[in-house]
Design a protein around this nucleic acid. Structure first.
Length: 709
DNA sequence: GAGCACTGC
């Protein structure tokens, strides 16, 4: 195919320059705009110029589909069988062989590889593609690469591809390495800014869409909304308004919603060409910004918002907030209008707002997530020369976030009281799960309920993709569903997940059964794959066969006591105690939160209408109120060991003295002692009043203030 | 009695 189309790719004109720069430098940043061909060509150029003689070329992608489609393209261009010289590796699927010299993989897979081979010695070149998307895994990899080029100075080249606005930052991170600019092949996009923010962005989107439809020549319209609700509102209003337009006054129109929870058959509608003389309106979430590319888009409407999940390490709580997009995102959105011909982008904000208010780049995921998993992973790599809290991140997470991660890991026995990884922690790091679930599996293995725990862990890994999403008007209540789904025996959501999977197992994984019960087939298959993968890893760790069969529970364990006890160990940091005489809970940890059981939970109350005294929760999420999502009843005696650990918690010791202040974070129930220590300070002779103690006191009071809200 | 964007090992 491709001799002609390849020759047109802009990047090929820079081949000599690229090779010369890579020859002379261990790290090179490549700014490659959309359509530059960087993802398919950089690897081939370096292969042509001899870089595969001493090892393979790895190219990471943030998404699975990208790894597959790009590797397929490259294998076609090189005219080889996919899986031979060119292959890919993604979770559940390794299409590489002894012959493979160019390997596309997701960044998560490369991280797993470096666990068993920290020097990644099989690779002569590592290309981190789309690094500007700044996934958690990419950021960890960037830090590891910085170390690796020192260890392997003579035989490793690293290329990082990024966006215009943050290439310089990446270059500074890698000791001012050179930056190569490769132009893209986008058509020009005219940008129109509004003079001010609209009062209602849904109305503004609708008016702009109607303007385009009645005044602009043919071409599809892509509208970015923040979520399913707004998408549905806009779709129905737009349908109504377009129907009212005078017949013959303009061309026909179809309107498609597009978001992640849409069933696949509705998602793929946007990829089939529209009927002739018909304009398509695609009302989409962020999914159309990078993950899905819709051909035929000529007009983009960008209100400038996105919905983002953030983690607050001081409360352990997630929230989903509508925030302003970054400049990088705004440019990415605009670019969606110029893929097939010159286009237009209508921004519902002013150029001044863009220039002055918008961040250059989106706040990276590493500054918005719980870091327990990543920190455990880094600890298990034994980077002996550095304290993990001083790990060199491109954008370092806050000290608070690191402390929170250490606290979590300590409470589930992954690290000891001095912050060193335990043998249990090492085993946990091998499992592709969040630490709470890996810990549950290992405990379940001791309690004889490994098989059940594997199922629960796999179900929770897919939890958000299980239920078929329906529009607002339809009934989508899980527990009031007329279907015959089990109710977790009233013990909670983890147990319900187990029971659902076991029922599906009994139908021999029948897809019809999923549909009847309103479960996404895709999601349930994913659960099955995850469970299988976990079984394989566990058996490898145990060096022998284990009892992992999906089976009915033993008769003597009617109340799932073993499983719930195992969950209690895994969720040591996610325990809550019910308050006296009502159904509110307070979380147990050094900072207590008042929370409630999420209304979607299947947890049952007793005859007096009260929930169990103790529960574990999978996550805290603040929506209209702070809620615990996915809870499971546990019992006082199982909780006691965690209480003991909370008493001994000394976070500054965990961080290996990285916290230079004199503050010692104590369990919540030792507040009195804490007050004494801190208040004593000003009474001492002036020279003893260390400013650090005062700072610690301020932070402490600020935290208490928050907790009491 | 709620209402959740998107990825990934």
């Amino acid at each position: 195919m491709s001799i002609i189309s390849m020759a047109e790719l802009p990047i090929l004109q820079f081949e000599d320059k690229i090779v010369e720069t890579v020859d002379k430098n261990p790290v090179v940043v490549v700014i490659g705009e959309t359509g530059s061909g960087k993802s398919t060509q950089l690897s081939q150029i370096l292969h042509r110029r001899g870089y595969t003689k001493s090892g393979c070329i790895a190219v990471t992608q943030p998404r699975r589909v990208a790894a597959v489609t790009v590797s397929r393209r490259v294998s076609e261009e090189l005219n080889v069988q996919l899986g031979d010289e060119v292959g890919y590796a993604i979770r559940f699927e390794d299409r590489t062989s002894e012959k493979t010299i160019i390997k596309y993989l997701t960044d998560g897979v490369l991280l797993r590889e470096s666990l068993s081979n920290p020097e990644l010695s099989q690779y002569s070149v590592i290309i981190l593609d789309e690094a500007h998307e700044r996934s958690l895994n990419t950021d960890v990899l960037l830090g590891l690469m910085k170390r690796l080029i020192k260890l392997r100075a003579s035989n490793l080249k690293v290329l990082v591809t990024s966006a215009t606005l943050d290439g310089e930052k990446v270059s500074r991170f890698f000791s001012d390495c050179p930056i190569l600019n490769v132009p893209g092949k986008l058509f020009p996009v005219e940008i129109h800014h509004s003079s001010e923010r609209p009062k209602s962005y849904i109305d503004a989107c609708m008016n702009k869409a109607l303007d385009i439809h009645t005044q602009e020549p043919e071409g599809d319209v892509l509208i970015f909304m923040t979520g399913q609700d707004d998408i549905e509102k806009l779709v129905s209003r737009l349908e109504e308004r377009i129907q009212r337009l005078e017949e013959g006054s303009c061309m026909d129109a179809v309107i498609y919603p597009l978001h992640g929870s849409l069933p696949p058959e509705l998602q793929i509608r946007v990829f089939s060409p529209p009927p002739p003389n018909c304009r398509r309106f695609i009302v989409s979430t962020n999914i159309a910004e990078t993950s899905l590319t819709v051909d035929g888009v000529v007009y983009v409407i960008d209100p400038g918002f996105v919905k983002q999940r953030q983690y607050n390490p001081s409360t352990g709580m997630y929230s989903l907030d509508v925030v302003q997009i970054s400049k990088v995102q705004a440019n990415q959105r605009a670019g969606r209008a110029g893929r097939t011909r010159p286009g237009k982008c209508y921004r519902l904000y002013s150029s001044v707002a863009y220039k002055d208010d918008f961040l250059d780049a989106t706040i990276p995921e590493i500054q918005r997530s719980s870091l327990a998993g990543s920190i455990l992973y880094l600890k298990s790599l034994d980077l002996s020369d550095i304290n993990i809290l001083k790990f060199d991140f491109l954008d370092p997470p806050s000290f608070e976030a690191l402390e929170d991660a250490l606290k979590q890991l300590y409470l589930i026995d992954a690290i000891d009281d001095e912050g060193s990884i335990t043998s249990l922690g090492r085993t946990m790091a091998e499992l592709p799960l969040e630490p709470s679930l890996s810990r549950t599996l290992l405990e379940a293995n001791e309690c004889g309920c490994l098989s059940q725990a594997l199922t629960v862990a796999a179900m929770l890994s897919a939890e958000t993709t299980l239920l078929i999403s329906q529009s607002k008007s339809a009934d989508k209540k899980r527990k009031h569903n007329p279907s015959n789904l089990p109710d977790g025996s009233g013990l909670g959501d983890h147990i319900q997940f187990l029971q659902i999977f076991e029922l599906w197992h009994q139908t021999d994984y029948n897809t019809g059964w999923c549909k009847e019960n309103n479960l996404q087939v895709r999601g349930m298959k994913f659960v099955k794959d995850v469970r299988k993968q976990l079984c394989q890893i566990i058996q490898k760790i145990a060096k022998g066969p284990m009892d992992v069969k999906t089976s009915k529970r033993r008769r003597e364990d009617q109340d799932y006591r073993s499983l719930r006890k195992a969950l209690c160990s895994g969720y040591g940091n996610q325990l809550a105690e019910r308050m006296l005489r009502h159904n509110g809970y307070k979380t147990l940890g050094f900072k207590s939160q008042l929370v409630q059981v999420h209304p979607s939970s299947v947890l049952r109350t007793d005859e007096e209408g009260l929930f169990p005294n103790y529960v574990i929760y999978h996550e805290l999420i603040a929506t209209t109120r702070p809620y615990m999502r996915n809870v499971c009843a546990v019992e006082m005696p199982w909780v006691r060991p965690v209480f003991a650990k909370l008493q001994n918690l000394n976070v500054s010791k965990l961080s290996g003295g990285a916290n230079q202040s004199h503050e010692e974070v104590q369990p919540e129930n030792s507040d009195v002692q804490k007050d004494d220590v801190v208040n004593a300070a000003p009474a001492q002779p002036a020279e003893d009043v260390d400013s650090k103690i005062l700072a610690a006191r301020e932070r402490y009071l600020a935290r208490r203030g928050q907790a009491n809200k």
